[in-house]
């Protein structure tokens, strides 16, 4: 399969006075055409920053280095004008909060048509017709919502469907879903997730899903990348990861997940003690050392590199978990 997106040594740096800190540090992965990758980790690990870096909407003051190659073109090297042309058209994004990602003063049809008109240069009539068809496709037929409906008349699930329609409008090659549908209740979440998976497969789009929900990861993504404190600590096919975690952090994440299925009523859910170290307080060694139960003296002087731990499975740990 041909590679669509190749991220190599991506670092995001912020400055505070004379100090620098890394929000992401030399993160690398590849995503093939039609592939699905889940990026997991706690809040503050740099997942959302990764998404913003890919789409080119980093906040001011965050400097990116490394390479983000889409079809071989390094997006980070492109000037803003050229970059803007890739947004929506090659890379699109489904936003986290369906309540906040729609303009409350604009009818939904116009918001779906926005990208069509701005990026594909379609006329009003044609864009409106396409928007109508897209709304039909995402399960909002004429009887449920007209293109003239304002967002506040829709439920959370319906708005999420509108967001999917917006993201799909220009037929992007890569779709980024940041904490997709986590604001919805479980039933609705399952429905929109199934819709998204179906549409992505149907259009052979690549999907990069950012989530902290391991259940979502298992349902949708073929591969997983575990981020911790801005570093990639484990990368593996999702099935392999569910069979055996190598990094103590990943093991901890699975341990405190309800999806792991080991919780009987009345038992306490295990947690990973401590918190993700903030960007300006990260030492030279393994970033997880402070919270790790398996920490040894050799974890502290320098960062463990990613190394192979199975077929297509890589881990950045000197003392990985060995499952018996």
């Amino acid at each position: 399969m041909s590679v669509l997106l190749e991220v190599e040594g991506l670092s995001l740096r912020v400055r505070r006075g004379a100090e620098y800190a890394y929000l992401l540090e030399r993160v690398g992965f590849a995503l093939e055409v039609g592939g699905t990758l889940g990026v997991v980790g706690e809040s503050g690990c740099g997942k959302s920053m990764l998404a913003l870096a890919l789409i080119g909407l980093l906040p001011r003051g965050v400097a990116a280095s490394g390479a983000v190659r889409l079809d071989g073109t390094d997006l980070l090297a492109l000037p803003e004008r050229a970059r803007r042309a890739t947004r929506g058209r090659r890379i699109a994004m489904v936003f986290q909060e369906p309540m906040r990602a729609l303009n409350p003063t604009q009818p939904i049809g116009r918001q779906v048509a926005e990208g069509l008109r701005a990026q594909l240069g379609l006329g009003r009539a044609e864009a409106d017709a396409r928007a109508r068809a897209l709304l039909d496709r995402v399960g909002l037929p004429a009887g449920v919502a007209s293109p003239h409906t304002l967002p506040h008349r829709l439920s959370g699930g319906q708005r999420q469907r509108v967001l999917i329609a917006i993201a799909l409008a220009c037929e992007p090659a890569l779709l980024i879903a940041d904490e997709f549908s986590t604001a919805l209740d479980m039933g609705t979440q399952a429905q929109v997730l199934a819709l998204l998976a179906e549409l992505v497969a149907e259009r052979r789009m690549a999907l990069l899903m950012i989530t902290h929900d391991l259940g979502l990861l298992a349902q949708v993504c073929a591969r997983a990348l575990v981020l911790y404190a801005g570093r990639a600590v484990e990368a593996a096919p999702t099935a392999a990861l569910f069979a055996a975690r190598r990094h103590p952090y990943t093991e901890g994440l699975f341990g405190c997940s309800l999806h792991a299925g080991h919780t009987a009523p009345g038992t306490r859910l295990p947690t990973i003690r401590g918190q993700v170290p903030p960007p300006f307080a990260r030492g030279p060694g393994c970033c997880f050392a402070g919270r790790c139960g398996r920490v040894e003296p050799d974890c502290l002087p320098e960062q463990p590199p990613l190394h192979a731990a199975g077929p297509a499975h890589r881990v950045a740990c000197l003392h990985p978990v060995v499952t018996v």
Binding site: A92, A101, Q111, G115
Partner: peptide, 9 residues
């Protein structure tokens, strides 16, 4: 939705 509009180019 401002970010979304920017994503739409």
């Amino acid at each position: 939705f401002i970010a979304a509009a920017r994503v739409a180019g």
